[in-house]
């Protein structure tokens, strides 16, 4: 690993915080979904970094990342299906 582990963790913490900030302040549903994707990517970076440095077996972190990506895609699909349904019934996707 060329970069020390702590630097990567700082990066992912910042990405996580930006994502949480986004979910708290965004008014638009799709904007909130975008912010949640940022959080999930921060988690994935953490997992891969740890699987490369501290994991007891090298496959664990990467496989967990696969599952996070798959579930994030599923949640995004459901979210966007609900956004479409909501738009159809109320013509707006603002949360306030």
């Amino acid at each position: 690993m060329i970069i020390p582990l702590e630097h990567i963790l700082m990066f992912s913490t910042l990405l996580f915080a930006i994502g949480v900030y986004g979910t708290l302040v965004r008014r638009n549903l799709i904007g909130i979904l975008i912010s949640i994707e940022l959080i999930l990517n921060a988690v994935n970076v953490n997992l891969v970094a740890f699987s490369r440095t501290t994991a007891l077996s090298p496959d664990t972190g990467q496989i967990f990342t696969f599952f996070v990506i798959a579930l994030a895609a599923a949640a995004a699909a459901v979210g966007l299906a609900i956004v479409l349904a909501l738009y159809r019934t109320s013509r707006t996707i603002f949360t306030d």
């Binding site: 799709i30 975008i34 990506i69 994030a72 995004a76 966007l80 956004v83 479409l84 738009y87 996707i93």
Partner: peptide, 17 residues
């Protein structure tokens, strides 16, 4: 998956709404 599929989905949803 992310850039290919999920981004396409998000952009679709943005276009449609």
């Amino acid at each position: 998956i992310y850039v290919g599929a999920v981004m396409t989905l998000i952009i679709f949803a943005i276009m449609l709404t």
